[in-house]
Write a protein that binds this DNA or RNA. Structure first.
Lengths: 231, 231
DNA sequence: CATCCGCGGATTGTTGACAATCATACGATC
DNA sequence: GATCGTATGATTGTCAACAATCCGCGGATG
């Protein structure tokens, strides 16, 4: 039989699809931190039953994007300054690990090419001041980096963390003081992945994350204790 | 009002409880890789409705412990050699990050004391050759390490990874050639956390993970490419 | 006026029934 | 004898109704 590609057709479950939509809504800010997710309303919008919707929502609870209060409802998690710090500490761990994998077992040039292309999209979006596109390009860069590592577990974790990142940025509506820095920080990482030392790559990623914490939670930094500020 | 502790009583959702039970069952091998989770049967055992059980199962799907085939059922994920490698690569990233946090912002002595206590339990379990207790102590060590970092995100990720670790070990039923090594590897990490350099701590964790991959998937190592072995 | 009590509406949690699909066994056909 | 088509039972996916709980409001009470 001359079938070019014979793979099992894996029809995604409905709850998985709804979960994806919900993630998107949270990432885009259509569902803001603190918002309640009314079951009847949402089920109506998605045209599924409440049962199916609840299955999808439980996935996001597990992921840490939603919080559940019994008999009261499900809410989009709010991110404290501690959470902001934690998100970036964790991203630092995940993306450094991904970078190490690429350096040791990946096609560095191919990855760098791909990341450079995304940097170009990022530059273009900044040039016309299209903030949503800027955010998407930024997220795409980091997602591509982790995906290129080939680790499904790192990728899955990174997906959640990137959503939380967008939530932080949106809630605090703080962005780079000089947008040009945003491009150079990313191109530097891409360049180092192409032909830099491991120490350089890891240092640039660390600095990138530290920068973000500095912008989003100025009273702490990436490596400071969680909370010993007096209230 | 003289209430000593007034905290919101947060009744855990039923699906969260069932999800925990399922995780335990997978970790203990009561649900083995490849096993199908019949809904009617399980719902009966837990004395909940199928709907509630399905919500719990969707959580584990999100976590990557279960795999779903539409109209066919949910199955415990099987771990390929690539997965074994990926689990340990990811654990390496998570636990190294946790260790760095402890070194930079934690009470090193307190953490080391706690880990030493677990090492003692580990030693005792090995002495009487109680394999389940050995496994529990091993998992407890790494869970305590990550918990001590204070990062809720690292902790959540580690929980899943430790379950997958037990699955690997059980499925391959391979353990340490010399059980004594198992204790010394852990005590060495605890000691380094007490008063060693960061490089030493990270190196020991890396070696610990590399050792595990060596035992469980001898044809690869922690830093080798995923798969360029011919079939 | 502040507090407590209880009622009604609204929302969530749970359940059992129904529809869609799959797996298996059996017989027909070449 | 192997393959195809079909009927049958079992399992999953979906839904709508019922029970349990929460929230807000009005009224009673001190």
């Amino acid at each position: 039989m001359g079938l070019t590609r014979v793979e099992p057709v894996n029809h995604e479950s409905t709850s998985a699809i709804i979960a994806d939509r919900l993630r998107l809504a949270i990432m885009d800010g259509d569902l803001a931190p603190g918002d309640q997710l009314g079951e009847a309303d949402l089920a109506g919008r998605f045209e599924v039953s409440r049962g199916t919707l609840r299955e999808a929502m439980q996935r996001l609870v597990e992921e840490g994007l939603l919080r559940s209060e019994r008999y009261r409802g499900l809410f989009v998690c709010e991110l404290s300054p501690d959470d902001v710090q934690d998100v970036y500490v964790t991203r630092n761990a995940i993306e450094q690990a991904a970078a190490r994998l690429i350096l040791r077992r990946g096609d560095r040039a191919a990855v760098a090419d791909q990341l450079d292309a995304i940097c170009e999209q990022l530059r273009a979006a900044i040039e016309v001041d299209d903030q949503p596109a800027v955010g998407r390009a930024d997220a795409a860069f980091h997602e591509a980096l982790v995906t290129a590592s080939g680790s499904s577990r790192l990728s899955r974790m990174a997906r959640t963390l990137l959503i939380e990142t967008r939530m932080c940025i949106r809630e605090l509506s703080r962005t780079y003081a000089s947008p040009a820095d945003r491009v150079t920080e990313h191109t530097a990482i891409a360049a180092a992945l192409r032909d830099g030392t491991e120490a350089l790559v890891l240092g640039l990623i660390d600095a990138h994350m530290a920068d973000a914490v500095q912008r989003l939670a100025p009273d702490r930094d990436l490596h400071s204790p969680f909370t010993d500020l007096v209230d």
